[in-house]
Simulated scan of single mutants.
Amino acid sequence: MKKIINDPSTVVAQSLRGLALAHGDLLRVEQDPAVVVRADAPVADSVAVISGGGSGHEPLHGGFVGPGMLHAAVPGAVFTSPTPDAVQAAVAATTGDAGALLIVKNYTGDVLNFETAAELAAADGKDVRSVVIDDDVAVADSTFTAGRRGVGGTVLLEKITGAAAERGDSLDAVEALARKVIGQVRSIGVALTSPTVPHAGQPSFDLGDGEVEFGIGIHGEPGRERIPAEPADALVERLLAAVVEDLPYAEGDEVLLFTNSMGGTPLLELYLAHGIAERLLAERGITVRRRLVGPYVTSLEMQGMSVTLLRLDEELTELWDAPVRTAALRWGR
């Protein structure tokens, strides 16, 4: 294993220290338990939008803390759910009378621990609600989940709900908006190589030189099937077909297309794949109105990509376009 780390047991804490130094104008890091919080938190009269999950998927979630997106992110150990006390600490650091919305990816540990924290916060008199995102069309269940997994759609959900909170929407409105996004977003991914978790010291799974894992999870969970490697045209067509046919998306739809690197895929290949995806969607009569391309939901150094589609309307487009200022996403003011 070759990684730019010291001790696998301290890799998350040291990474968070560097994040705080690099982006101190946007966020602060609190330790014991570890929480990434907006520098200006708590924000008066604003719903606090909080998310989190295992580390190793950066910039998800800490890279999305800042004005127009998350108020706090709760990082667990690599590929491990954060503990309820850490989620409680995030709620305490950010939540006022307007309440908080917890965005939870559909993994068993995340769901249990965030729900426990929400119940404890409610016992303290705080209005804290949670939504579970399950946008991965690859499988119905996996070793990490009961039901579909939460993957690339999480970024879009965090951005849109964060924009709604920033403009002063109520907790009822932000929660309803979150459920609307969850109903309109779908994703799927493919892996060319395995990630190596630092404390494990070896690849999470084996892939032959001529194989790819179609429908991979962001922790390296098995997908739909292991298939022979294909040229980009065929592989992107396979990915898009799985997503488009699930909702389904239809001719005349307007969408946000998110083409994501799983960590090890260079932008040269990612932009190539994105161009293919736009062409294939146009052939189906689906119009790409907004785009996001880059490594935003990674799986350490895994080579691979995912494709996410969000069906847009005027409200969702306006909130996507709203100003955002985080370490990983910035536009507008």
Rank of each mutant, 00 (worst) to 15 (best):
F144H: 11
F144K: 09
F144Y: 12
T145D: 12
T145C: 04
A146R: 15
R148P: 01
R149M: 01
R149I: 04
G150E: 04
G152I: 03
G152Q: 08
G152T: 08
T154Q: 07
T154P: 06
V155L: 11
L156W: 11
L157G: 03
E158R: 10
E158D: 12
K159C: 06
K159H: 07
I160Y: 14
T161G: 09
T161Q: 11
G162Q: 14
G162A: 14
G162T: 15
G162N: 12
A163E: 09
A164S: 15
A164K: 14
A165E: 03
G168S: 06
G168D: 03
D169W: 06
D169P: 08
S170Y: 10
S170T: 15
S170N: 11
L171S: 11
L171W: 11
D172V: 01
A173Q: 15
A173L: 03
V174S: 10
V174T: 15
E175K: 14
E175A: 10
A176E: 13
A176C: 06
A176F: 13
L177Y: 15
L177K: 15
A178P: 07
R179D: 05
R179P: 05
R179H: 08
K180S: 12
I182P: 04
I182R: 06
G183Y: 12
G183H: 11
Q184I: 00
Q184E: 13
S187P: 03
S187M: 05
I188K: 07
G189V: 05
G189E: 08
G189H: 09
G189L: 10
V190W: 04
A191E: 10
L192F: 15
L192H: 15
L192Q: 13
T193Y: 08
T193C: 01
T193G: 01
S194Y: 08
S194C: 04
T196K: 14
T196L: 07
T196F: 05
V197N: 01
V197G: 00
V197E: 00
V197L: 09
P198W: 02
H199W: 03
A200N: 08
G201T: 01
Q202E: 11
Q202M: 08
Q202D: 03
P203L: 04
P203E: 11
S204P: 00
F205I: 06
D206Q: 11
L207V: 06
L207T: 12
E211T: 07
V212G: 01
V212S: 01
E213F: 00
E213T: 10
E213C: 01
F214E: 08
F214S: 02
G215E: 03
I216Q: 07
I216M: 09
G217P: 05
G217H: 05
H219T: 13
E221P: 12
P222C: 09
P222A: 15
G223S: 08
G223I: 02
R224C: 00
E225I: 02
E225K: 10
E225P: 03
R226Q: 02
R226W: 02
I227H: 01
I227Y: 03
P228N: 03
A229T: 04
A229G: 14
A229F: 00
E230F: 00
A232R: 13
A232F: 07
A232E: 13
D233M: 00
D233C: 00
A234F: 03
A234E: 15
A234W: 05
A234Q: 13
V236S: 11
R238Q: 06
R238W: 00
L240Q: 07
L240M: 09
